[in-house]
Design a protein around this nucleic acid. Structure first.
Length: 211
DNA sequence: AAAATCACCAACCGCCGAAAG
DNA sequence: TCTTTCGGCGGTTGGTGATTT
C-alpha cells in the first residue's frame, strides 16, 4: 500500500502560511515543477504532494493574474463554456494567467443557474430558440457564401446554450419579446465578431496540453 | 445592533487514466 | 498482466467578509 516511510496520516491541511509558501517556492525553483510527491521529503514541508501542486498551480506559479476578470475574459469564458461545458482546464488554456479553479469559481458565482431563475429561463429559452432558428438560417446562408467557414464546425445545440448565456450575461432576465429581436441582433454581432477574431486566432490551437 | 443570508474563493475530496513497478 | 502510485480534473465544502433583514 503506502510503501513509503511517511504515512498518509499527519499531512498538514488548511490555509498555507507564508513560511510554507516560501519553502514550496524554493523547492520548485531548485527542483522544477513536478515530482510533487517528493516535495515533503525534500523541502521540509509537511504537505501532501497534491496539496503542494495545487498551491503552486493556483497561487505561487509565476505569471498569474491577480486582478478581476476583465469583460474580455468574461466573454471568452462564456463562449468557451457554451462550447465545451465544464472543461475548466481546457478553457483556462485560452486565458493566460488564469487558473481552472478561478474560472470555475467565477462561473459558479456569476452564471450558474439557480432554482429560482430556472423557470424563467426555460420560458425564455423557448422564445430564444424560435428566433434563433430563423437567425441561424441566415447565418447558414452566409456560411454557404463562404464568409464564415469556422462556424461550420460548431455544434448548433451548443450555439443555443451560448446564446442563453449571452442573455444571462447581459442581465436580460426581465425583458420580453419586443426587445428580443434587437437582442438577437446583438447576439449575432457577438458571435460574428468573435468567430472572426477569437476563433480565427484560436482555432488552430489544438486541444492538447502544452508540451 | 444582532442575526441571517449571500458572495466569494482557497483548498479538499474522489475519481480517473497513465506510468511505473 | 495486475497492482500501486501519481498527477490532473471537476465537484464540493468551509471559512470569511459583506450585505440584507
Amino acid at each position: 500500500m503506502m510503501g513509503r516511510g511517511i504515512a498518509e496520516q499527519g499531512w498538514r491541511k488548511g490555509p498555507w502560511t507564508p513560511e510554507e509558501d516560501k519553502l514550496l517556492s524554493e523547492y520548485v525553483s531548485s527542483n522544477g515543477e513536478g515530482r510533487w510527491s517528493s516535495v515533503s521529503r525534500c523541502s521540509g514541508l509537511n504537505r501532501s504532494g497534491k496539496s503542494c501542486r495545487l498551491r503552486w498551480v493556483n497561487y505561487l506559479r509565476p505569471g498569474l493574474k491577480r486582478g478581476q476578470i476583465t469583460p474580455q475574459e468574461e466573454g471568452i469564458i462564456i463562449e468557451l463554456h457554451a462550447l465545451w461545458g465544464n472543461k475548466w482546464s481546457t478553457i483556462a488554456r485560452y486565458l493566460p494567467g488564469r487558473t481552472d479553479n478561478e474560472i470555475k469559481n467565477y462561473w459558479r458565482t456569476h452564471f450558474k443557474k439557480t432554482d429560482k431563475s430556472s423557470q424563467k429561463q426555460e420560458k425564455r429559452k423557448a422564445l430564444i430558440l424560435e428566433q434563433e432558428v430563423q437567425h441561424h438560417h441566415q447565418q447558414q446562408q452566409q456560411l454557404e457564401a463562404g464568409e464564415m467557414k469556422m462556424v461550420n464546425t460548431i455544434d448548433h445545440v451548443k450555439m443555443h446554450e451560448a446564446q442563453e448565456m449571452y442573455f444571462m450575461y447581459h442581465n436580460l432576465e426581465d425583458q420580453c419579446s419586443p426587445v428580443m429581436t434587437q437582442d438577437v441582433a446583438s447576439w449575432a454581432d457577438f458571435v460574428v465578431e468573435d468567430y472572426y477574431g477569437l476563433w480565427g486566432g484560436l482555432w488552430n490551437l489544438d486541444d492538447h496540453p502544452q508540451g
